[in-house]
Nucleic acid binder design. Structure first.
Length: 929
RNA sequence: GCCCUGGUGGUGGAAUUGGUAGACACGCAGGACUUAAAAUCCUGUGAUCAGCAAUGGUCGUGCGGGUUCAAGUCCCGCCCGGGGCACCA
């Protein structure tokens, strides 16, 4: 065999491992380039052909950059804390660390086979105590920080305490849930416990009673991004709302910076848009409405202060604490009933039930700040307690939800913006002239918004305000297999575990379930107390440790930094490593992390930047989302009620049910291996098959790759049959990296054949056959067209088109029977990022030693590309009719003259004289008749 | 509902950003080599009409308009697929 890929690939993989070919240099004169893949969670199922897609693309870039003279950091590791290993542990009693270790071994084996140029010496695992020591350390920095909005930066909590001691809360501009002002005297007189209660409202990692997403089936809380349509993202279990004491991270402090930062990074527009939606900035005003006959006020947030004269009632969320205070005696019963009803509804029901209007009058009235009119106060579950102030001013004429509410309960609808018909629906558009609105009359909506805010501020009724939809991130999980939160409790007050006692390692437990009392699994640890002098001690001594662990995204929020300096024992990353590597130049991974990992990571980096740990604002300069590789399922058509199958073309004649067929039993022409199919399952053994033209054909459909659809293709099988280089090139050839596309094993023969063809340029049978003759013009042109294209394509991440370009060039050289060193040497280097094993083999065959990976990448020479003639398409009224080869040196006029003199031109003119002749040199001739 | 994407042969996809639509590959059809198969190589392959044929005509990039000598590409209005957000005031 002239292309013995199995032997070649094994040989060079060993060579790379033995020579440490891809070790990134600590420091270097070379410019740095950091290419990162989203590290995988090592699941038990192993990789299917969809997983390596992004890794192949990043590997091509890494290898290309090495050829271009960069010091490339291209690491890999494992996001090894997670639910599946824990659930397996619950079922079997096996420690999740063991399962994880086994899965990692399998992953490593699969990854190694594909020939990636990872620097494995820097491997990280989030579940490794040497790694999570620093995850815990970062958590403690967050715990010890508050956010100063005046400086727009986080600061040490000590600075806040000093301020409180000297001046109380006056002059503090912080992101906080604290609403009560106090003086220095009051502060200094507080007990430690009371002080800590207040500080918790400022810390960036804090404990608070908050409504959380509780998943009873998983026995843990979930972050907002882990819940989809009221179900847990993992497992699809129902999620309910529950009030719990929870650790949270104050990501909301960074909302504006997270939003602004998007403008300086090269990410896809759709991804940025997802993050913008998630952060959900809206501008408006907060306005205080006084209550009739009471001291309290209702504060609302509105984005439409211009419609303030259209307010005809107020609505509070049922959970709003004000409700109980203001409800009049006569309505107490019905309000209580409504609240109970609302509390019973799960988030999911509430979402599903958007169309049903419900609410209850409280008996109380607010007073319109400008008109003095009395406004009835209602409660309704369309108002959310967790957004804004949990209260709205209702402008039914210009808000569809308020409109529905007003119609249902027959409340007044007052139009204040011209331009819509409000007899059937509200007019929500922000266009038109304001009417019926006193000092706002005659203004455009935009002007009215500004004027209304100015007036509200002037009268002390409120102020302009920006609101974000982003919520603080719930950080505690009632699980075993995660990073322990390094906190202990003294008199119920949380204290940080000392740095010298980090990592706080997971305790040994006898089972991985929550306890019978519903406490997290860590409560089963027999040695899970803490003494600030001694560290972890047995229960009964010292103080109790926190029992929840960190969520899956904790470790992944900073792992990119650890690769820069994986063995550092003094810091997550050294100043030197940070200064050299800075941040990730190219990050490739799936778009499913848009509002989870990618947002949290940006948050942690901004925080670490504030702390002076790192120098960069953003972790990932450029990000590409690789598309999903879908499966091409195969179906056999079973005749309803019979054990009989009909071929695809005949199924119209029968009533059939499609049955999934394992794609491995179908060939490239969609023919089913009937014998294999019969042997597949007992019930099929006696089946009858009706063929067409002697063939039994299956139907095809594109679906997500999944075991249950029998359409999963394993890379190991592909590598076994065609080799890793073929797999790599075929995955790239399938289509644009960012696009989702179906896998079809049938097409792979094209790429495999190409690699064989390439080999044949260098070899004659088993022997190397290379000539030192000078290359001719045509050969050089073919090569240099390719050099130019490949360079451009890699820079543009358009790998599918470079594979085509390789095919075109190799086809051309094959026809010319070119075996000249002058052509074949650069060709081997060009293809090395794509098919590295074969490239190494060819390079060695050309007589080189020392490997190909650092050989400079070819640069094209324009001289060889220069054309002296061009085949002009000649079009009449824009329709191409014939072509004429002309010298490119001919000017416009000369071309026109030549073309007009042609006999063929005369035929098409058919006696008419052209109105106009357009000549675009080197492009086209168009004759307008 | 709002926001991002995308829509090109039987299939995956190209098209230098306004200049020959369908590169490259799969599949299909035919042929060469072979006892045969595999492998390899060659030819054809958007639809449709006319012709024995070389060839020629018409249509054709989701739909309907428009700009232009020229539109897959630009503009206006729709339709459909994929994704994000969503009683967010």
């Amino acid at each position: 065999m002239d292309y013995n890929f199995q032997e070649i690939e094994k040989k060079w993989q060993e060579y790379w491992a033995d020579n440490g070919s891809f070790k990134a240099e600590e420091s270097s004169e070379k410019p740095k380039y950091y290419v990162l893949d989203m590290f995988p969670y090592p699941s038990g199922a192993g990789l299917h052909v969809g997983h390596p897609l992004g890794y192949i693309a990043s590997d091509i870039v890494s290898r290309y950059k090495r050829h271009k003279g960069f010091n490339v950091l291209h690491p890999m590791g494992y996001d090894s804390f997670g639910l599946p290993a824990e659930q397996y542990a619950i079922q079997t009693g096996q420690h999740p660390a063991i399962t994880t270790e086994e899965n990692i071994k399998r992953y490593r084996q699969q990854l190694d086979q594909i020939g990636f140029s990872f620097d494995w010496s820097r491997e990280v695992r989030t579940s490794d105590p040497n790694f999570y020591k620093w995850t815990q350390w970062i958590f403690l920095q967050l715990f010890n920080s508050w956010y100063d909005t005046s400086a727009d930066s986080s600061k040490s909590i000590d600075t806040l305490v000093q301020h409180f001691e000297a001046k109380g809360s006056e002059g503090v501009n912080a992101v906080t849930s604290n609403e009560e002002d106090f003086t220095a005297e009051v502060w200094n007189a507080l007990s430690d416990i009371q002080k800590e209660e207040i500080l918790q409202k400022y810390r960036l990692a804090y404990r608070a009673e908050s409504t959380v997403n509780w998943c009873p089936a998983l026995g843990t809380v979930l972050a907002n991004d882990e819940v989809k349509d009221g179900l847990s993202e993992r497992g699809g279990h129902p999620v309910i709302q529950k009030k719990m004491m929870q650790w949270s991270l104050r990501i909301t402090a960074y909302a504006q910076r997270l939003l602004d930062g998007l403008d300086e990074i090269d990410w896809s527009e759709s991804l940025k848009e997802s993050q913008r939606n998630w952060i959900g900035r809206s501008e408006g005003a907060s306005v205080h409405f006084a209550l009739k006959d009471r001291e309290d006020k209702i504060e609302v947030f509105t984005t439409r202060p211009d419609t303030i004269f259209g307010v005809s009632f107020m609505v509070l969320a049922p959970e709003n604490p004000l409700v109980d205070k203001i409800t009049t005696e006569a309505y107490e019963g019905s309000v209580r009933k409504y609240k109970e009803q609302a509390a019973k509804k799960s988030e999911r029901d509430r979402l599903a039930d958007v169309k049903t209007v419900s609410g209850q009058f409280t008996g109380a009235y607010a007073v319109h700040p400008f008109s003095g009119k009395e406004l009835p106060i209602w409660i309704g579950d369309y108002v959310l307690a967790s957004y804004g102030t949990g209260a709205v001013m209702s402008v039914p004429a210009h808000d569809s939800r308020d409109y529905a509410f007003a119609k249902y309960f027959d409340l007044p609808i007052l139009p204040v913006v011209e331009g819509g018909d409000i007899s059937k629906e509200s007019y929500d558009a922000k266009e038109g002239k304001v009417i019926n609105s006193d000092f706002l009359n005659g203004l455009d909506v935009k002007e009215a918004v500004a004027k209304a805010i100015a007036k509200i501020e002037e009268e002390g009724l409120g102020k302009g305000k920006v609101n974000f939809r982003l919520r603080d991130a719930i950080f505690g999980r009632q699980r075993y297999w995660g990073e322990p939160i390094p906190v202990y409790y003294q008199d119920g007050v949380p204290h940080a575990v000392k740095q010298e006692h980090l990592p706080l390692e997971l305790p040994q437990v006898d089972a991985y379930l929550p306890t019978e009392d519903g406490e997290p699994p860590l409560a089963r640890g027999h040695k899970w107390n803490y003494d600030p002098e001694k560290g972890v001690v047995a229960n009964g001594e010292g103080y109790p440790l926190e029992q929840t662990t960190m969520p899956g995204w904790a470790g992944s929020s900073w792992y990119d930094l650890r690769y820069m300096d994986p063995f550092n024992t003094d810091a997550p990353v050294s100043e030197k490593a940070d200064a050299y590597w800075q941040n990730v130049d190219l990050y490739i991974g799936g778009s499913e992390h848009a509002t989870g990992h990618l947002l949290y990571t940006r948050f942690w980096h901004k925080f670490l930047k504030d702390q002076g740990i790192i120098s960069q604002n953003e972790p990932f300069k450029k990000l590409i989302n690789q598309g999903m590789i879908l499966g091409t399922s195969a179906f056999a058509y079973r005749v309803e009620g019979q054990n009989k199958f009909v071929s695809r073309g005949l199924r119209k004649d029968y009533k059939t049910i499609p049955v999934h067929v394992d794609v491995h039993m179908v060939n490239a022409s969609d023919e089913l291996d009937v014998e294999a199919f019969k042997a597949w399952r007992d019930d099929l053994a006696g089946a009858e098959f009706i063929s067409e033209n002697g063939k039994f054909l299956v139907g095809r459909e594109v679906e997500k790759m999944s075991k249950s659809k029998y359409n999963v293709v394993n890379p190991d099988d592909i590598i076994e049959q065609y080799g890793a280089d073929t797999l790599r090139m075929y995955e790239m050839f399938l289509g644009p990296l960012e696009q989702s596309k179906p896998w079809n094993t049938a097409g792979i023969t094209g790429v495999h054949g190409f690699l064989k063809k390439l080999t044949r340029l260098y070899k004659n049978g088993a022997d190397w056959n290379i000539s030192d003759e000078k290359a001719d013009e045509k050969e050089l042109k073919s090569l240099h067209v390719l050099i130019k294209k490949v360079n451009e394509d890699i820079e543009a991440f358009s790998f599918n088109t470079s594979v085509s370009a390789f095919m075109i060039c190799v086809n051309e050289l094959g026809v010319m029977k070119c075996n000249k060193r002058e052509i074949l040497e650069p060709l081997a280097v060009l293809i090395s990022p794509f098919a590295p094993h074969l490239a190494e083999e060819l390079w060695a065959g050309l007589g080189h030693e020392g490997g190909i990976s650092a050989v400079p990448f070819p640069v094209h020479n324009d001289e060889y590309l220069a054309q002296n003639s061009f085949e002009y398409p000649v079009a009449f009224n824009g329709k191409m009719r014939f072509k004429e080869e002309l010298s490119l040196e001919m000017g416009k006029d000369a071309v026109e003259k030549h073309i007009m003199a042609l006999e063929r031109t005369a035929t098409y003119l058919d006696g008419k004289s052209p109105k106009k002749v357009i000549v675009v040199p080197g492009k086209i001739v168009n004759i307008v008749i």
